[in-house]
Design a protein around this nucleic acid. Structure first.
Length: 320
DNA sequence: GGGTCAATAT
DNA sequence: CATATTGACC
């Protein structure tokens, strides 16, 4: 148990994908042209006049619908008292800026961030980051920086952190000892209590023991180790995601070992995880080859698992 | 400004 | 349904 403490830390390095490895995937997966081609744009919501300084070229701007204003699609039958929430269907009222600025702007340029899918791997990075920051330093911004997953926003992390904290709390209450270790077991056996809905994601990554024990001065002093990841601060305009896991729902919960498994050989000499990273070639479409075990295959076509929603899953880096 | 929580939207 | 988004408070 205590041994694992020092142990899991060593493993962390090995598991960490190098920035180089991330980059190829994180580069511009969705070019403006692609975005246009795929009709990726903001259908009904134009939150802010999002200027992307990174994009120097102006899109062809074929025929942009002026779209005067989207009607309040949701009448909200039960709410007699009009909620002061001007949530999504608003901005028509006082959108001075939006009216003048955004209306003229092409919606296509305003790329809406696709829904982030928290894959176990991504979550693992998240947990690792939190673990090494310590609970107290584990705030969205820092976590986000440590993860250095481009495309990840503070909001993404904050939202996920919220859920994660709830999960931890629940685990603390219901698990004694074996619960934390259960992280090792991982997806296999999870606590019978608590909703499977939220759990199965979190259960897939090993939760560092200290997370479950709030009052534990002992495990506080970890290393000031700063992963290289923290250095790169990239324009977070493009999602690092490879396309969706639209893989058949049947094998969705199946997380098989990744092909690009770069775990250092327990044999002794591990290559530097940060060096000699063979670029993970992401074969985009093309060959209709059936992957025997398509853990995370990029599948743009069927990416729409949620109807019209575009779902992107972040890089499948790291494996256990 | 940034974090957390809660509610709500999609 | 999971996640994003938003608002409110600290």
């Amino acid at each position: 148990m205590r041994e694992e403490d020092s142990n899991w830390f060593s493993r962390w390095e090995e598991e960490l994908p190098s920035p180089e490895e991330l980059m190829p995937l994180s580069q511009t997966l969705i070019t403006p042209d692609l975005a246009l081609a795929f009709d990726i744009r903001n259908p009904n919501h134009n939150p802010t006049a999002n200027n992307t300084p990174t994009q120097q070229q102006a899109p062809p701007l074929p025929q942009t619908q002026p779209q005067p204003q989207p009607p309040p699609s949701n009448p909200l039958p039960s709410s007699a008292t009009t909620p002061p929430h001007p949530s999504s269907a608003e901005f028509a009222a006082d959108s001075v800026e939006l009216g003048s600025g955004a209306a003229g702007e092409e919606p296509a340029r305003t790329l809406k961030r696709p829904r982030l899918v928290w894959t176990p791997q991504l979550h693992k990075r998240f947990v690792d980051a939190v673990a090494h920051l310590g609970i107290k330093n584990a705030v969205p911004k820092t976590i986000m920086q440590l993860m250095s997953v481009d495309g990840l926003t503070r909001e993404n992390v904050a939202s996920h952190l919220q859920k994660y904290r709830l999960y931890l709390k629940r685990m603390q209450g219901l698990s004694s000892g074996s619960g934390g270790g259960g992280g090792g077991g991982g997806a296999g056996g999870l606590a019978a209590t608590a909703d499977p809905a939220t759990d199965h994601l979190f259960a897939s990554s090993p939760v560092p023991p200290h997370f479950l024990h709030p009052g534990r001065p002992n495990s506080d002093h970890f290393l000031p180790f700063v992963p290289v990841a923290a250095l790169q601060h990239h324009p977070q305009q493009q999602i690092a995601a490879v396309a969706a896991m639209a893989a058949h729902p049947q094998l969705q919960p199946q997380y098989h070992r990744q092909v690009g498994h770069f775990g250092s050989p327990p044999n002794g000499q591990f290559e530097h995880p940060f060096l000699s990273r063979p670029s993970q070639s992401v074969h985009r479409m093309g060959a209709p080859v059936h992957n025997p075990v398509p853990g995370y295959v990029e599948d743009l076509e069927s990416a729409n698992g949620t109807g019209g929603r575009r779902v992107l899953t972040l890089f499948p880096t790291g494996e256990d």
